[in-house]
């Protein structure tokens, strides 16, 4: 399994979207090729642990190959469990944010607040903006970029599971 294979698998588990959405067979947009290097570089630099990205992906691979097979839900819960380090869990949550928003999140330090601070984010590119899964969850389109045809606003959107690929 390559790093990309594990990255795709982990992304499917953590986002709840089907592999057909995260990694289509014919992937002209290929947003994963933009996300993987950003995620790898940012996680390594922000955690101060260059091995952390590979450790996370290896951890995912081990869980995905476990016998008897775990469900995606079970794998996701283990990846985000308290048994993992805070940096490990944060990196997984950043991956979720990246896929949903097409943006890199930075949690600001704010000692003494219950939330731990606000989350700032930076959109990677126009392609990542339009590829954000949040639009699919809303059964809508990004502002300024609609792939629907004329008159779509007069029709109900297609079912949510068509957008998530989980039908």
């Amino acid at each position: 399994m390559s790093s990309m294979d594990n990255f795709v698998g982990l992304s499917v588990v953590l986002t709840g979207f089907a592999k057909s959405v995260i990694n289509p067979t014919l992937d002209e947009v290929n947003i994963k090729a933009e996300y993987l290097p950003v995620w790898t570089e940012r996680v390594a630099s922000e955690s101060g642990d260059n091995q952390l990205p590979e450790k996370i992906l290896s951890n995912y691979q081990a869980l995905s190959e476990q016998e008897p097979a775990l469900t995606d839900q079970q794998i996701g819960e283990q990846m985000l469990s308290d048994s993992q380090s805070a940096a490990f869990v944060l990196a997984c949550r950043q991956l979720i944010f990246l896929w949903y928003m097409g943006a890199w999140p930075t949690v600001q330090e704010a000692p003494g607040t219950s939330t731990g601070g606000r989350t700032d984010f930076c959109t990677l590119s126009s392609k990542s903006y339009t590829s954000g899964l949040v639009w699919r969850v809303m059964q809508a389109h990004p502002m300024g970029d609609s792939n629907y045809s004329y008159g779509y606003w007069g029709e109900p959107p297609v079912a949510l599971d068509k957008y998530t690929g989980q039908q």
Partner: peptide
């Protein structure tokens, strides 16, 4: 290549620009 691609992307994000062509692509 991955590192080169990442550098391009991060520079774009830090600079507040949204037009990036992936070196990998």
């Amino acid at each position: 290549l991955l590192i080169a691609g990442a550098s391009l992307l991060l520079a774009a994000c830090d600079g507040g620009k949204d037009e990036t062509v992936s070196a990998i692509s």
